[in-house]
């Protein structure tokens, strides 16, 4: 029994070996090499990591990144929740239509979408011209080349990623539970708050963590809509490595990014346990 089991495990390992080897050779090894630079360049030691506490420039980038990512998540997830909810309770045709509406932007590159926002938000952009023609404002609003512009672009980009985990989680909720609550005297709002919302909590958490992870790595959107004035970590790393070049600092920040992402992924895996949201039968 034990022997056949270990034999099966050996066969499994053997079958997976080419893929594992490929991963090791072309992914883990180079990534490990780059990350190891953070303790090797320019001199061996933890000097680069000290900069996390000493360099005000790095601290500013990190806090701006954290702020932008958290605000983006805080906006994208509620919007995504609203859309996922409408898709879940909507009619069949409505569901298909809205789902395409959510998924379609995924196939348009971040570059194109960022430039679309530039045309909309710039000083002589559609939004400012419209507001001025209405007489709501005298001077054009600074809608772009600042954190506001970056957040608008990032929220827009993140909505599908916020919607999808929420949709999966809501699909697992037995809608009769809401009916049951209504039948026992709960108003629509009360039934939603007491039953649907708590049952969709795992989806909210999964969606928030996924969006947070993805926003940390944003490069194109902040680069274009931030106009160089709002610097996020990915862009800062690029500058360190390609412009200056300070490989050690860039690798150190990349390591920080990887560690935070892995920590969030571990947290995320807890919310994909299907037993959390399923109705027991």
């Amino acid at each position: 029994m034990g022997e056949t089991k270990s034999a099966a495990a050996r066969t499994g390992l053997l079958l997976a070996a080419p893929a594992l080897l490929l991963l090791l050779l072309f992914y883990l090894f180079p990534v490990g090499r780059v990350l190891s630079l953070s303790v090797l360049e320019p001199t061996p030691g933890l000097g680069n990591y000290e900069m996390l506490f000493t360099s005000s420039g790095i601290q500013a980038v990190l806090s701006a990144t954290a702020r932008i990512c958290l605000i983006t998540t805080a906006i994208a997830v509620p919007l995504g929740y609203l859309m996922a909810y409408v898709i879940t309770i909507g009619s069949r045709s409505m569901r298909t239509f809205m789902l395409y509406g959510v998924l379609l932007p995924l196939w348009v590159s971040a570059l194109v979408r960022s430039f679309v926002w530039v045309t909309l938000l710039q000083r002589r952009g559609l939004v400012n011209q419209f507001l001025q023609s209405l007489g709501v404002i005298d001077q054009p609003l600074p809608l772009i080349w600042n954190e506001f512009g970056v957040i608008v672009g990032m929220v827009h980009y993140m909505i599908p990623y916020a919607v999808l985990p929420l949709l999966a989680s809501m699909a697992a909720i037995d809608i009769r539970l809401v009916e049951a609550a209504r039948g026992m005297g709960a108003s629509r709002g009360r039934a939603f708050r007491e039953v649907f919302l708590p049952l969709s909590m795992p989806g909210i958490a999964a969606s928030a963590i996924l969006v947070l992870i993805l926003t940390f790595g944003f490069y194109t959107t902040p680069a274009i809509l931030g106009g160089g004035r709002t610097m996020m970590i990915a862009q800062y790393i690029t500058t360190q490595i390609l412009v200056l070049p300070r490989w050690g600092v860039g690798a150190m920040l990349a390591t920080v990014l990887v560690v935070v992402t892995i920590a969030l992924l571990l947290l995320l895996s807890r919310f994909f346990d299907p037993s959390h949201s399923r109705t027991e039968r």
Partner: peptide
């Protein structure tokens, strides 16, 4: 909610996030 009919569903439709007591108390709480 105004009709106030008790209902037992196929598959029961118990609230999975509430205890037995909370499930039973739901209608009274509402």
């Amino acid at each position: 909610e105004k009709r106030a009919f008790g209902m037992v569903y196929q598959g029961y439709a118990l609230f999975p996030h509430m205890t037995v007591a909370q499930n039973v108390a739901f209608g009274l709480r509402m």
